[in-house]
Design a protein around this nucleic acid. Structure first.
Lengths: 196, 196
DNA sequence: CTAAAATATTGAACTTTGTTCATTTTACAA
DNA sequence: TTGTAAAATGAACAAAGTTCAATATTTTAG
């Protein structure tokens, strides 16, 4: 029965791939079961043989997007030396990823899964994602006594909440400015947090 | 033609009142033109004689909710002396308002109006709302040399972004904790910002 | 006061989207 | 080759936003 599982995973993959393309292209708002299925080369009804519902399918994309975001961050910060400077660069790269793909921000932070219990692990990793990206650098700061444990706890939390809030306000047009100015502002905020 | 305008405003008011009740009660997700019209005592089609579309109607609620939130904040902080201590209390009361009415947070920060140009003034006042609530206290800090202008700019921005981010993560279940613990955490964050 | 004109209200109907299910198609083992 | 299990599918339904022609009400002119 192993063949069956391979085939099932492959077809799930087609739907997930189609969903990811639409989220990255037109965004989450123009996502619907019919255009997902079209792009995957199946009928919309077939989708329900592989996923409980549409929410279930789109939350399957979270892990892939996290991997992709991590790559983007590594590409932009991997050459920097560990420490506070790289934390700033990581946070900036993290923000720029979501600005490039607003639909992914919506999926990560705004979309509500119907069945919260089943999706809780996914929601947890979203919450801790930026911390995970900075983990090595926080460890570096700790072991080199650049910050105390208490400082690290405060700073990492401030980074997480501040960046999330800025992105929400910017992407939802409550915070009107252009990209360049926004990146300057978020850089200032990040520096204010890290540099004390 | 003044009578006409009074009548039109009155009927718009019935729809707005109905919408506000549903947002505060069942939340934005169970809001639809048919249950709004039912509660207002009209047909759903009548709604379109008074509002361009459903988005237009629900954004009309923003001002009323801001007034209500301001009252809530004043009730909880009006007796305190102006200054940094009251800024903390205002930010906490502001957060507690949105926690009591998650639907109002969604309306303020997540809901997207189709016609962004027409709604931009509303979006601007949402962005500056917390700053407005704290305005007297920031002025107090400035004139008493408790903080420099630069500090006030940084701190007010940090407060705005940090509180918005925490509320988003908490209300959308990325940040799993109970109400009491959350209020402790947000108090710590606010203190870290204000107390330097 | 009445009839015509203007205005307001309304349900029917259309669109879009998510979902279910009975039916058809396909794959495969005997 | 054929019978059966699995997979794929379109028809159909529900919920929601929106439009519009028809109906009801109000206002106005004679």
């Amino acid at each position: 029965m192993d063949k069956k599982q391979i085939q099932e995973q492959r077809i799930k993959g087609y739907f997930i791939q189609a969903t990811k393309e639409i989220i990255k292209g037109e965004g989450i708002r123009s996502l619907n079961v019919r255009n997902i299925a079209d792009k995957a080369g199946y009928s919309y009804a077939t989708l329900y043989n592989y996923f409980k519902d549409a929410k279930d399918l789109i939350f399957e994309c979270v892990n892939d997007f996290q991997d992709e975001c991590q790559l983007h961050v590594n590409d932009n910060t991997g050459m920097l030396p560990a420490g506070p400077g790289r934390i700033k660069a990581v946070a900036l790269a993290y923000a720029s990823y979501f600005i490039e793909y607003p639909g992914i921000f919506e999926l990560f932070f705004i979309e509500k899964p119907y069945n919260v219990a089943g999706k809780q692990p996914t929601l947890d990793v979203i919450y801790g994602f930026l911390d995970k990206l900075c983990n090595d650098d926080w460890e570096y700061c700790r072991s080199n006594n650049l910050f105390t444990n208490a400082e690290i706890n405060i700073k990492s939390a401030q980074l997480r909440f501040n960046v999330t809030g800025m992105l929400l306000l910017y992407l939802n047009r409550r915070y009107i400015t252009d990209y360049k100015e926004f990146m300057n502002n978020i850089g200032e905020q990040i520096s204010a947090i890290i540099d004390r």
